[in-house]
Design a protein around this nucleic acid. Structure first.
Length: 153
DNA sequence: GCCAACGTTGGC
DNA sequence: GCCAACGTTGGC
């Protein structure tokens, strides 16, 4: 049973175009620094799961592409890099605190911007649309995935 | 730049 | 374990 996820990326850092241009269209999802989001990766994600590639903190936030989970979890190397903005002085090599998965972009879609998503009553419970939600990785219910696929068809 | 809504930290 | 203060996220 495939699972579905929504993963936020700031297009200034990694946009859907950047991901598609990467080798194998695959990028390591570095920089997750929230335990709940990390636990979704650790406890819920499987290779092949569907991913909605979401652009956040940009002029037009919204779903910008479709991707898939392309690897199991691995330690996020940026936690050990003092020069990285994601450096975590408290993380130990033998017991990594932060994890990542590889994400393979499958295709760029037309931008499904927030107002369009909010206009769909069927998506009212989509986690990303709920008030105050800030999680960078959230599960997406199969029914929601279907609605979004239909919007993109 | 503002600010609401969270998450984290640290004193007690 | 509580909770105030602080930091961050992210849409607008």
């Amino acid at each position: 049973m495939p699972q579905y996820w929504l993963m936020k990326s700031e297009p200034d850092e990694v946009s859907i175009d950047d991901a598609l241009a990467a080798p194998d269209a695959t990028v390591a999802w570095t920089g997750v620094r929230n335990y709940q989001a990390r636990n979704f990766m650790r406890d819920g994600m499987k290779v092949g799961d569907g991913v909605l590639f979401y652009h956040s903190s940009c002029p037009e936030p919204g779903i910008a592409g479709i991707a898939r989970v392309a690897s199991g979890i691995q330690p996020d190397p940026t936690q050990f890099d003092p020069k990285s903005p994601y450096y975590d002085a408290g993380a130990k090599k033998e017991d990594p605190r932060w994890l990542l998965v590889d994400v393979q972009a499958l295709r760029k879609t037309r931008l499904l911007a927030l107002p369009e998503l909010r206009a769909k009553p069927e998506l009212a419970d989509l986690v990303i649309l709920r008030k105050g939600n800030r999680l960078s990785i959230t599960p997406v219910e199969p029914a929601h995935w279907k609605v979004i696929e239909k919007m993109l068809a």
